[in-house]
Design a protein around this nucleic acid. Structure first.
Lengths: 114, 114
DNA sequence: CGACTGCTTCGAAATCTGTCAACCTAGGGG
DNA sequence: CCCCTAGGTTGACAGATTTCGAAGCAGTCG
């Protein structure tokens, strides 16, 4: 849990954008992740999850932070889940979300410049 | 030009996603940038521009790399331009594009994790 | 068991996106 | 001066997205 140096990339990736052209197959995957972050609500959800105390946060703490209905938040969380950016986990009554750190690191690396 | 540590952010930004929750106003701006990258064609265009030799590339070198018509490429370039990710510059017959490195660096910083 | 709460899934309406064909503008050459 | 090429703009349309209300499933508590 403490050692996270070895970046296990589930998909093709990783030469920084500014160094080499992204191959078409990798582009599709990466674009899907960026697309998931391309909505203000999802970006905020992502940051709330990633910066949560203990690395996890309950949906019940996410929903009231927005002027949106439960189903809508649930939909956005699903998009993040399907993009591989977060993982969820039902624990009793509540569902907890946590960020996929390696995936975020990978995206950050792709955008890194000189 | 060599020292790029001080990130000059044109817009509000920059505490990494995983450190603090992104405020709503910043989220809108950042999400717009990620959204622009959230299309495979634009991501490839972006990487071709950012990794171009000499930091610049001619549209005439971009268009033939895709199975898309000129207007479509032009549209995608416009999206990147309006997101502040690239700048363009007509030079005689041809139009040249170059990446906004600080903006890319900012996005990378936002996604950076521990 | 039965009802209540939390979250997800389903179905539907309004809006946004990606793409092309057609047209327009800027610059270079006969 | 007229035309030709490189790109960008406009208009149109199929398909995707955002959002909601209603319904469904999973756990908890009386």
């Amino acid at each position: 849990m403490s050692k996270q140096l070895a970046v296990l990339q589930p998909e093709a990736c990783c030469a920084p954008l500014a160094v080499a052209t992204v191959p078409a197959e990798a582009a599709a995957d990466l674009a899907a992740a960026f697309k998931a972050l391309g909505d203000p609500v999802r970006l905020q959800l992502m940051s709330m999850i990633a910066s949560a105390d203990g690395g996890e946060i309950c949906v019940c703490d996410l929903t009231p932070a927005f002027d949106l209905t439960g189903p809508t938040i649930s939909h956005h969380l699903k998009v993040l889940r399907e993009a591989g950016l977060v993982e969820s986990d039902r624990r009793g009554t509540w569902v907890w979300y946590r960020a996929d750190r390696p995936k975020l690191a990978m995206l950050s690396a792709v955008l890194r410049v000189g």
